[in-house]
Each structure stands twice: as C-alpha cells, then as structure tokens.
Simulated assay, not measured.
Amino acid sequence: MNRSRQPPSIHLRVMPAPGVALGPGKCDLLAGIRETGSIAAAGRRMHMSYRRAWQLVEELNRSFRGPLVEASKGGSGGGGARLTALGETVLDRYARMRTAAAAAVAADVAALRRLVARDD
C-alpha cells in the first residue's frame, strides 16, 4: 500500500481529571449514538458488544457533571438513546481539540512520513 496516500492519523486521549479519559473509542461511540439513536447500534458499528457499549456509556455518565447519554427503555415503540446537551458539548469540544492537534503536528507528521521506509 502506498503510505503517502494515506491520511496522517492522530489519536488524541484527553484526561480532563484524574481517572477520566476521553479518547477516540468513547467519542466514536458517542458519535454513533448521535447518528443512530441507539447504544446497541453504535456498539455494533464499532464491533463492540452491547454490554461493553453500555459500560462505556455508564462510565461517561458517571465521569461528568451530568449524563452525556440518555437512554429510554424498549417496549412496543422500542427504546433508544440520545446525547444530552452536555454530551453534544463534550463531543464537539473533543472534535475541535482533535482538529487543532492534527493541525499543530501536521509538519512533524509530514517529516516523519518522509523518514518511513517505502514499500511501493
């Protein structure tokens, strides 16, 4: 594969408080919940078990001043989940930090790419 055609990859993990980590996995799960309206569907998209997705949502909800995700129980109309206003804010802030971090290191990433052994 031609590495020069692959976009640079940056993985940002933020620890806003001791024991509270926010990174690509949790944020991808939040984005999936935003897009699908379902914790289960968001987890499936990430090849994650329903149980693991729920554990991460519960961890996120405990870690912040309020819940990031609100879930409704299933029933005749089915259940669902949605991001709260706080969840939207957290996800949007993370996306902005990730964009800023990528821009800040772009020149160094480009320099490292020039130093990588080519296989093409």
Rank of each mutant, 00 (worst) to 15 (best):
N2T: 06
N2A: 10
S4I: 03
S4E: 09
R5S: 03
R5K: 06
Q6E: 14
Q6G: 00
P7Q: 14
P8D: 09
P8Q: 07
H11I: 15
R13M: 12
M15Y: 13
G19P: 02
L22C: 07
L22T: 03
K26F: 05
C27M: 15
D28H: 14
L29F: 13
L30N: 05
G32A: 11
R34D: 11
T36I: 08
S38N: 05
I39V: 15
I39A: 01
A40M: 03
A41M: 13
G43P: 01
M46G: 05
H47C: 06
H47Y: 11
M48W: 08
R52D: 05
A53Y: 02
A53M: 01
A53V: 01
A53R: 03
V57L: 00
E58D: 10
E59Q: 07
E59S: 03
N61C: 06
N61K: 08
R62I: 00
R62A: 04
F64N: 06
R65L: 07
L68Q: 06
L68E: 09
L68N: 07
E70P: 02
E70M: 13
E70N: 05
A71P: 04
S72N: 06
K73R: 14
K73E: 14
G74L: 05
G75T: 09
S76L: 15
G78N: 07
G79A: 04
A81T: 07
L83V: 03
T84C: 06
T84P: 02
T89F: 08
R93L: 08
A95N: 11
A95Y: 05
R96L: 09
M97T: 09
A100P: 01
A101S: 13
A102S: 12
A103C: 03
A106N: 07
A106Q: 14
A107P: 04
V109P: 00
A110E: 11
R113N: 06
R114D: 08
R114M: 02
D119E: 15
